[in-house]
Design a protein around this nucleic acid. Structure first.
Lengths: 182, 182
DNA sequence: TAGAGCATGTAATAGGTTACATGATTAG
DNA sequence: CTAATCATGTAACCTATTACATGCTCTA
């Protein structure tokens, strides 16, 4: 299995409470829609798979005056699989880190701090690399128009890396407060 | 055709000068590798397609003491197709905007300014939306741990949107200088 | 002679989107 | 009665990755 993000996201949503396929779509849209999307073509097959793997159960609900719906809930085994994913250390992508953090409430706070810290260190390395390039490649040294366009993407890298690092620091300190207050 | 990003990226690289499939991989790695990747499984089929569509030509090069290589170059029709893509206005994703800007030297500067400005306006709207949520959803009003984790992703949205907007302003002013100095 | 780097390419598969099909119920 | 919303699902398709196969040339 490769990334299979949607699989774990659906499992993650289920970990926050039982819901139907339809609910999952809405919940993802509301909660993390600004950086992550799922389509029906994924939700329903994934739910089927999750049930066949015993990582989820479902019951059919028929309330008065509403269409029937299948309400899914995560199993203990499903929880274990989710935690395994949350623990896996390939958070090169912002999305993956952000998703894992969003579902982080099922983890000890210290794990989340550690995860953020590792991510922060990666970004600090990236920023350092960008800074090194920018030291000899900047508007003062640029000769051709194409170099400007290269510089813009480099600046994007710098500016966003800085933003990521700041965000990490902020989140870390809140998590540390939460950990103390507990 | 849908997004087909790699197709246009390869065309874009070709627009900067003739090169082989192997070169394309290296060039992408060096120039935009920090936010975009291509695999061989894409490069070679895309090059074949580009040639069949007359958007690229190639000649076989055999220099002394080196393996043979196919050197591809973009055609006028290919250029037109690239420009069409650069002009298309679906830059929701950072990557797409960034790629288009990277290949922006084939466009008039004003087009690039306009593109950045549209992107900036989108990001300003996003930021406004995040700010609105943050107004009633922040550490002072949060009750459950899960809400903190939601807040973290919201903050990520805010912090990065701000960074994008700053970057836009910076790039815009450099582009304006370039336009004047021309 | 072994390994690194140059160089081209393909087959299998995964992951995801789009567009469609189907149907119940509620509000205007 | 019609549109919106609730609700489930599938088939076709596209894009991209992974992993492999092949072979040349230079350097240590």
């Amino acid at each position: 299995m490769k990334e299979n993000t949607s699989y774990y996201v659906i499992l993650g949503i289920l970990s926050l409470g039982e819901c139907s396929g339809y609910d999952i779509k809405k919940k993802i849209g509301n909660a993390i829609g600004y950086f992550y999307k799922v389509s029906n073509g994924q939700i329903y097959p994934v739910l089927k798979k999750l049930v066949s793997q015993k990582y989820a159960d479902f019951r059919v609900e028929k309330s008065e005056g509403k269409p029937y719906r299948k309400v899914y809930s995560i199993t203990d085994q499903g929880f274990a699989v989710l935690k395994e994913w949350l623990d896996s250390r390939d958070n090169q992508h912002n999305n993956e880190l952000l998703l894992k953090l969003y579902f982080g409430s099922v983890q000890p706070i210290s794990k989340n701090i550690q995860m953020i810290d590792e991510y922060k260190k990666i970004k600090e390395k990236h920023l350092e690399a960008y800074d090194n390039i920018a030291a000899y490649f900047n508007p003062g040294t640029i000769n051709t128009p194409q170099e400007y366009y290269s510089y813009f993407t480099l600046r994007f890298g710098q500016v966003t890396a800085k933003a990521y690092i700041d965000w990490c620091s902020e989140v870390e300190s809140i998590l540390q407060e939460m950990d103390k207050g507990k």
